[in-house]
């Protein structure tokens, strides 16, 4: 179906984009990679007066690595993210999560910021952002705020973004002591979102887990951390058997029914790779 008619504006500087978003409020739709917004336009689920195309805005894409963190521009394409040498070196699990999204001809266009703002509860990158304690830089005309990923998502396809606000940068702390794994259950035959996605990281000293980080998507209205899992693993030996034994007793906190079983299975699969 054809979208409703809209104006297309493609500013080249961020201030102009933020001005437009401030002036047009909820009547404006920011366009990043278009892999979520354009289907919604085609379905007429979104009917903006103006589409603010961010693809020509200077400075919104790219990866910068410092000693303590990796700063990723919101317009960085997943195709770049999944293979960027700095991301692969500093945050390999983020590259893996990006490479699991949809298909190559979607990742050519899709962006990190677009995926986070679309906020599908089962999507890979929102769960990764929560697992990695990412901080999201939200700019508006005349100001900015920084929101932790865990507080950014408020429900399926909803976030704390206010009209006029734009996610411009994702700041991911480097945690070299945590070794992460990623697993998901894709829906066979579908090219959309997985059923459940899981990330699990462990810090190991002398063969024993001293800290754990776990997060999941697809098991709650937003991606969630799994505190029961994070509490159950420290003290365990870093072997697939001992980690699995720890997982078996851990409350999964959110999932119900078959998704609980899927999540536990994915976490077990990850532990086999962390051994």
């Amino acid at each position: 179906m054809k979208p409703v008619a809209f104006d297309h504006v493609a500013p080249v500087d961020l201030a102009a984009a933020l001005d437009l978003l401030a002036e047009r409020g909820t009547r404006a739709a920011p366009l990043a990679g278009g892999q979520s917004l354009v289907p919604l336009l085609n379905l007429r689920r979104v009917r903006p007066d103006v589409v603010v195309d961010l693809n020509h805005v200077v400075g919104l894409a790219g990866v910068r690595v410092t000693a303590g963190e990796v700063r990723i521009g919101a317009m960085t394409r997943l195709r770049v993210l999944e293979s960027h040498p700095d991301v692969v070196a500093a945050l390999p699990v983020l590259a893996t999560a990006a490479s699991a999204v949809a298909h190559p001809h979607v990742r050519t266009r899709a962006t990190l910021g677009g995926s986070l703002c679309h906020a599908n509860p089962a999507a890979e990158l929102p769960a990764a952002a929560v697992a990695l304690d990412a901080r999201l830089v939200l700019r508006h005309r005349g100001g900015a705020r920084v929101v932790p990923a865990a507080e950014f998502f408020t429900g399926p396809h909803t976030t704390v973004l206010a009209p006029g606000e734009l996610l411009t940068e994702v700041v991911v702390p480097r945690v070299p002591e945590l070794r992460f794994g990623f697993a998901e259950l894709a829906r066979p035959g579908g090219s959309g979102y997985p059923l459940v996605v899981a990330l699990l990281g462990v810090a190991v000293e002398g063969g024993v887990v001293v800290a754990a980080r776990a997060a999941a998507g697809g098991v709650a209205p937003t991606p969630v951390r799994l505190p029961g899992v994070e509490a159950a693993l420290p003290g365990r030996r870093c072997t697939a058997d001992d980690l699995s034994a720890g997982l078996a007793t851990a409350p999964v906190d959110h999932a119900a029914g078959h998704r609980d079983a899927v999540l536990r299975s994915l976490l077990r699969r990850i532990t086999a790779g962390l051994e």
Binding site: M1, H8, L31, V38, P39, L43, V51, V106, T108
Partner: peptide
């Protein structure tokens, strides 16, 4: 026209894209 079926894939500057999810402009 939702990026699921792949029938509309073309190469844009040498990279594959769904031509239903890129605006002509």
């Amino acid at each position: 026209e939702q990026g699921d079926c792949g029938a509309c894939a073309v190469l844009l500057d040498g990279e594959p894209v769904c031509s239903c999810l890129v605006l002509a402009v």
